[in-house]
Amino acid sequence: MPVPVLAARDVKKSYGRGAARFDALKGVSIDIEEGESISIVGKSGSGKSTLMHLLALLDKPSTGAVELSGRDAGALGGRVLNRTRNQTFGFVFQQFFLTPNTSVLDNVTLPLRIAGVSGAERRRRGMEALERLELADKAKNKATDLSGGQKQRVVIARALVNEPRVIFADEPTGNLDTATGAVVEEILFDLNRRTGITLIVVTHDEDLAAKTDRSVFIRDGLIVDRSGENA
């Protein structure tokens, strides 16, 4: 059996202490295999975003462990952790988080700039990513001048540019109309199928969730089955 690219082992996460203590996750275990597409589904406040943050190594669990390729990520130091996030993960957010007044290309190459890739190489890989998303002609435009669908494609290009193993998509179609949303979904699933990038979609939209290989339902900090019973 192959080692899962990401795994959560009885992960608990709580915020605050005493009476104000809030348990966002109450013991979640999950294995995510290399190359699969998986959706984490839940309502607002269910703990799905917390789970994504833990899997993306943006946060540390209160107890339990997150494993990256079978190794405990909690043991990684700050610098290694930053490099791992930079090289392994790509992020697609509902709100695009594009830097205004900056060119599309500069936005796309941000992860490469953070990684310290040289200017020429950055440009080459940035243009490559934009070409894959049919946005090469917009490279010099200001990011804020694009339509919603175009912006989300820029965000996907940015997530792809460092050739990550895992893409986290947090409500990737939440801000788009149905038609544009469908196009963006198609791009993400196509990437997953053709290049084998692991796709983790966090959503409350069950239609979108149904298009992934499998769905994990979260409610009140626990994994439940589709009907809402504790799994």
Binding site: N82, R83, R85, F91, F97
Partner: peptide, 16 residues
């Protein structure tokens, strides 16, 4: 704020 958060999520260290 958002931009800083994004850069940190993408692996930019606090020192940088």
């Amino acid at each position: 704020t958002r931009e800083i958060g994004l850069m940190k999520a993408m692996g930019m260290g606090g020192g940088r």
